[in-house]
Design a protein around this nucleic acid. Structure first.
Length: 112
DNA sequence: GTTCTTACA
DNA sequence: TGTAAGAA
């Protein structure tokens, strides 16, 4: 309340709307992280700019879609580089070139 | 004495 | 959104 100048009522309402989800301590008291505080200030700004609850929800839902897309993209890249490395190592083993002492004919990669 | 939930205006 | 009531 002190950090955001929002009333307890407002903060709890935003939580009710799923805009912030503070952790609870053993006594069921809300424990706000720095990110939670940031989120509350951001919500306050949006409201000041005339955006309503539905609009703010839409904004964060869009953020979630983007985050989800980035996550899938990252997994795809890691998989591709893994495949590239695995095939490269395998090629070096089969050709007998640059074979490291501890490497056998068959790699220990789970996918090859 | 404070926070939590639920409910009413 | 503010406030009341009862539990925690």
């Amino acid at each position: 309340m002190k950090l955001t100048d929002l009333t307890a009522r407002q903060i709890r309402y935003y939580e009710e709307q799923g805009l912030v989800i503070p952790k609870r301590n053993e006594g069921n008291r809300r424990m706000y992280s720095l990110n939670d505080i940031d989120r509350l200030l951001e919500i306050k700004d949006y409201l000041t700019d005339g955006i309503n609850m539905a609009g703010i929800k839409a904004i964060y839902e869009q953020h979630e879609r983007e985050a989800e897309a980035r996550k899938r993209e990252m997994n795809a890249r890691l998989t591709d580089s893994d495949v590239r490395r695995i095939l490269h190592d395998e090629f070096m083993n089969v050709s007998g070139l640059n074979r490291k002492p501890e490497q056998g004919l068959h790699s220990q990669h789970p996918f090859v």
